[in-house]
Amino acid sequence: MTGRLMAIAALIAFLLGIVVATFSETRIFMPALLRGAAVTLQVAGLSFLLMVAAALTAGAAKTSPFPPVRWMAGAYIEIFRGTSLLVQLFWFYFVMPEFGVTLPAMAAGVLGIGLNFGAYGAEIVRGAIQSVPKGQREAATALNIKPLHRLVRIVMPQAMIIMVPPMGNLTIEMVKATSVVSAVTLVDITYASVQQNQIHYRTVEIFMVTLVLYYCLSQLIRFSMGVLEARATRHLCTGH
């Protein structure tokens, strides 16, 4: 319930912000910030898809019975968690051309962020898969269900419920981390605020607007995850 209230408050704040932007002198920097916000949302949305795909794949691979598959997943996870996100972004944008792969800035940003957070997510997925009781796997075996079908239909749906809350927190961290994409020349809301501040010198207004927008976004994610969790667990509690 508090999550719902906070989300509503966040939305109201967001709308108020737009109103203020339109009718006061904040409008001199607001359009640029909103253009930046659009870039941030785009990077965040695409990175989220990549993060989830990478996390599910690597997390499931980490529980594979075949050692080489586990090792590959382990190498991916260790490399992307151990080196810094910024290093990875630079690598995708500045070093990949050396290998003959020139990526647009958006692609480099999404790849870097998606794969970096996918590595953190993989550990969440692995933990969730392993916390599904052993008896579930045994029951599936006893029913002659094939391993892949067992993973997709029996284990994963139960693991999903366990992984939603930590994945929600990771998504919030991911959205916050998109603020570094100016490293690959994208003008997101963070970089737009720096630019606007250098033009207009209105530090407090510009950065408060930016911070509040990020805050609304992270509260929105928290709220959506709450809804998702409630949906996922609706038949796990007794009742009708």
Partner: peptide, 15 residues
């Protein structure tokens, strides 16, 4: 906790 560290750093840096 809900806002990016980088924006906070810029904010401090200019403020």
């Amino acid at each position: 906790r809900g806002t990016p560290l980088l924006v906070q750093l810029f904010f401090l840096f200019f403020l």
